[in-house]
């Protein structure tokens, strides 16, 4: 099941693993992404912490951890190809995976349909 935040992060939960990234909308708004500062495996984050920083040609943007948990895997491919986030923000452009997360935090997030409605309110 995939959830979205109002800050345009997404979390995809499969079993006890949560994959995190930024939405296609966020990637498109940022423009060409040229650098991603990834978290380190084993680091703990609380919901709302800056878990990554995404730089576009024009500006740097923090990515806030949508959940509290421990980073289990990072997407190292983004070091050489940060533009993958522009090409595939919600699939190959994932940022990291987390374990030991607090699944009750997902209750406050939007599903894909609600997020789409939310985006329309921003237009």
């Amino acid at each position: 099941m995939k959830y979205y935040t109002e800050d345009h992060e997404w979390v995809d939960v499969v079993g006890n693993e949560a994959t995190i990234g930024i939405s296609e909308h966020a990637a498109s708004e940022l423009g060409d992404i040229t650098f991603v500062e990834l978290p380190s495996e084993g680091d703990d984050y609380i919901i709302g912490d800056t878990v990554a920083t995404v730089e576009s040609v024009k500006a740097a943007s923090d990515v806030y951890s949508p959940i509290s948990g421990t980073v289990s895997v990072v997407n190292d491919d983004l070091n050489d190809d940060p533009g993958m986030i522009n090409k595939s923000a919600e699939s190959k452009g994932w940022i990291c995976k987390m374990k030991d997360f607090d699944s009750t935090e997902l209750d406050d997030m939007m599903n894909a349909e609600a997020y789409a409605r939310y985006l329309r309110t921003l237009e």
């Binding site: 423009g31 060409d32 040229t34 040609v57 024009k58 533009g83 522009n86």
Partner: peptide, 10 residues
């Protein structure tokens, strides 16, 4: 215009 459809890098 800061960029067009193809983006700054292109």
């Amino acid at each position: 215009p800061v960029q067009y459809a193809e983006g700054i890098l292109a």
